[in-house]
Amino acid sequence: MTKNLFKRERLTSYDYLITREQPFSFVSEAFQKTLVNLEFVNVDGNLNVLQFTSSLAGAGKTTFISNIIYLLGQKNKKVVVIDLDLRKPRINRVFNAPNTNGVTDYLAGKINYETLVNYSDKLKVNYIVAGERTLSVVNVLEANKLKELIKKLKSEFDYVLVDSPPVIAVSDALYIAKLVDGVIFVVGQNEAKKTIINEAVSILRQNKVNIIGSVFTQVNVKDSEVLAYTYGYGYRYGYDDLNNKKKTND
């Protein structure tokens, strides 16, 4: 409660993609740079199914994935994001879509593959929501049909990005890690203590998870560093920019 009172609240609007709204801002540049690094790591092209996880909730996984998937879409890559955070699904919020006709519904045989995979005209990418809530999350994640689904997605898309729960809270991320080619570990600055983050990484390593890299999010960048990021382009990002952008859009 004290934390909430004194800490500035971080407003989360999943459908606001900064890479789309402000493509030349230094934050978008940072996402671009990360994507370049990600592609460099995947230079052989064998890491097509990527899972994003963190130690605890609030590290910014969904925000990161949504921006990366948008940038991949902009590069004409055929890409799909799948929400396997079945306990706290959020991908549907990125696309302003209802959390229906998702993974759990597909695995239960209620819908077919065509109904499962949605396309966003706005972001020009495919997405799969989590679907109806289920109590047997582990059973769902261990289902052969899910493995087959991932396999099918892998064959159809250049990239399959998987949003998954944090490592410390539940074991879901470890089950999901068996289905993917690699894991990106997302760390939010000041979000979790070092021991918690180290513990999460340790758990992933103990389970022989292929961690291909980490991403440091929500980093408080000093003004001097901001200038360094923008390479003197003169772009600034802030409330004013947001408001101006909004006014322009209106």
Binding site: R10, Y16, L38, F64
Partner: peptide, 20 residues
């Protein structure tokens, strides 16, 4: 600390209600 390469550093940014 975690001995994993950092692929990207994403600065913190805030969204005003009006920016939604």
């Amino acid at each position: 600390g975690i001995e994993i390469q950092v692929l990207g550093v994403i600065p913190e940014y805030e969204i005003k209600e009006s920016g939604k």
